[in-house]
Structures are given as C-alpha cells and as structure tokens.
C-alpha cells in the first residue's frame, strides 16, 4: 500500500466493519441469550429433539435420531390408570435436546428448576430418557403464565423409555419429531409460515409466537414467504387425520383450488395392510374423475404406521 491514505482507509474500514458486527451480532447476543424458555418452547424442543435439519446422525433427513411424544394414560411402573400426561421419549442412543446438553439455553429460573427439581443433567444419551414438562408456582416475567420446567422422569420416577412405549397404544404415540424433519426436507416452510404476524393475522391464524417460544429449536424454519395458510396453530383449527390424509395425498380432493403439490410419494411402497400401492392406477382413475367419466374419486390408501407421511401428519396435528 503506497499511500498513507490507504493505511488510514484500511484502519477506518476495520473500525466501521467491526462496529457494525458488534452492534448486529455481539450486543443482540446478550438479549437473545437471556430469553427464558416458555412452556411452548420446552414442548417444541423436547418434541423435535437435537436438530431437524442436516445432522451427522441423519445425513439424508430420514427422520432418524428423533424422540417420540407419547400420551401416557397408565403409570408405566405400576400399570395403574393415571391423569393422562405427555411424555417425551428419547430411546437409547437418541441425541438429547439442546436445553438438556446446554442447560443455560433454558433461561433464568427454568434452568435452576430443571436441573435441581427436574434432574435433567442426569439424563444420558446411551441409556435414553423420558422427559415431562412441569409447571412451577413461579410466574414467567414477560407473560402472566406459570414458569414451566423440564423433568427427567427416568431419574425422578424411574420411567424408562421402553416401559413408557410398552404401555402406550400406537394412536397415543406422535412421531412429531421425525415429522419436523419431513417438514424441513419437503420444504413445506417455503409456502407455509410458522409465524402469525403481529397484525390482523391474530384473528385468522392465532397468536404470534412469543420470546421464549424458540429456545433450543433448530432450525426454527418459520419461513419468510407465504403461499398457503400459516400453520403455527393448524392442529387447533383442524385435527382430523382423515382430512390430512386426503389433503396430503392430493390436496385437490378436499380443496379444488389448492396449489399445494401432491405428497403421495411420502406413503412409500405399501399401505397399512402391507399391500403395494398402485400409484399409476390411482392417478389414471383420478384423471377419469377429473374429466367427469366417473362420479367419485378413487379411495386414498391408508398409510402404513412407519411411513413418512405418518410422521408428517403427526407433526402437523401436533401444531396446536
């Protein structure tokens, strides 16, 4: 650099760029790190597990390394009926969520309760763990709601993942964690936001997310570009599995003007009875129906229990 001006210029550049990085990255990090996880936030991170995008344990995004959300109706130890409660089951080998491995992420108050009363730091990936969400008698500072915390039921109650899964009917097990992976992989979030805006959106799509609703979630995938309705609270508006099934197989079966793609390929090869699904036949019959040659569309095959569409429907229904 031959000129004195260039030395001054490069230093000025360093100062300007450094200042901009401080204001946009360093300063906000204090506020963002101080956010206290809400009950919604705890539920979301326990439901979706470690990560829903690309991860080493699930390189092709098949929904691996994910927890299950289970409605527990009977005490897994004694088998006695109990007040139904959702448990988040991490079978042995499943990565634990961010709030368990980095407890500071839970925020002030929630961290102390989760560690001391909830004993979450005793959870181990190798042996698996079962988590519950508990309410405390303290109040959240930014919302007039009770402060919730995580409880490691494996440590406090001795519930093991296997026992919890054994007592549950298949219809009480939500594969919502794997479903979030499907949501990310299939690019649902390119058209459906998970972010009702702070405007009249409240009326149609429900309450916008609050600070603390995202702690530990990755990717948040709340989208930027809406070509279909917002889905953050879709499970509260429509919880019909039958409707979801028809809609995913071919959205125009239930909504003739929909521009959503068909997701019939998520059914996989076989239906619930193990019979091979003949997509070619289905499409040609559907075309006949569209052309008015037959009066009813062909039946949509019932999906298999371990199909990818089951995960996705579980995820969508679980968006309350």
């Amino acid at each position: 650099m031959n000129f004195r001006e260039y030395r001054i210029g490069s230093r000025a550049f360093g100062v300007a760029f450094g200042l901009s990085m401080s204001i946009t990255l360093f300063f906000p990090s204090f506020d963002l790190a101080a956010s206290i996880s809400s009950e919604v936030g705890l539920d979301k991170q326990l439901t979706s597990g470690w990560d829903s995008g690309w991860q080493l344990a699930d390189p092709l995004l098949n929904g691996l390394n994910k927890p299950l959300k289970v409605l527990v109706r009977k005490d897994p130890k004694s088998g006695e009926p109990m007040e139904p409660v959702y448990a988040y089951v991490y079978p042995a080998g499943t990565s634990l969520p961010n709030g368990v491995t980095h407890t500071a992420n839970l925020g002030k108050g929630v961290e102390e309760l989760s560690v001391k009363q909830g004993r979450i730091t005793e959870a181990r990936k190798e042996s698996g763990a079962v988590f519950l969400i508990k309410k405390s008698d303290q109040l959240l500072t930014f919302e007039d709601k009770p402060l919730s915390y995580m409880e490691n039921a494996t440590a406090t109650k001795g519930w093991t993942p296997d026992e919890v899964l054994k007592q549950a009917a298949d219809s009480d097990i939500l594969h919502a964690g794997s479903g979030k992976t499907m949501f990310v992989r299939e690019g649902c979030w390119w058209c459906h936001t998970l972010l009702p805006e702070q405007t009249q959106d409240w009326q149609v799509f429900g309450a916008p997310p609050m600070l603390g609703d995202f702690n530990g979630e990755s990717p948040t995938a709340f989208g930027s570009d809406r070509k279909g309705p917002d889905l953050l609270h879709v499970g509260s508006r429509n919880a019909s599995r039958e409707w979801m099934m028809l809609h995913f197989f071919n959205p125009r079966l239930v909504q003739p003007h929909s521009i959503m793609p068909r997701f019939d390929y998520l059914w996989g090869e076989v239906d619930a009875d193990g019979k091979k699904i003949d997509f070619k036949k289905w499409r040609s019959e559907y075309d006949e129906y569209r052309e008015g040659k037959i009066t009813t569309p062909p039946d949509v095959p019932m999906y298999a229990k371990d199909s990818e569409i089951r995960n996705l429907i579980d995820f969508v229904i679980n968006l309350k």
């Binding site: 760029f17 990085m21 946009t24 990255l25 906000p28 990090s29 963002l32 790190a33 956010s35 936030g41 991170q45 470690w50 990560d51 995008g53 961010n98 992420n105 600070l211 995202f214 702690n215 530990g216 979630e217 990755s218 990717p219 948040t220 709340f222």
Partner: peptide, 29 residues
C-alpha cells in the same frame, strides 16, 4: 474479504448448533 467473514460467521449456528432465535436471526444476518 467481507464475503468470507459473512459466510463463515453467518453459518456459525450450523457448526456450533446455535438454536432458537439466535439461529433465526443469524440466518437473516
């Protein structure tokens, strides 16, 4: 020069598994 910094810093959430609003904000940063 700035592209290198922006690219490496902008993808920090992926290397270090930063989550929640931090991840969302860094995505748009």
């Amino acid at each position: 020069f700035m592209l290198i910094i922006v690219f490496l810093v902008g993808n920090l959430p992926e290397y270090f598994h930063l989550t929640g609003l931090t991840e969302a904000y860094m995505t748009w940063w």
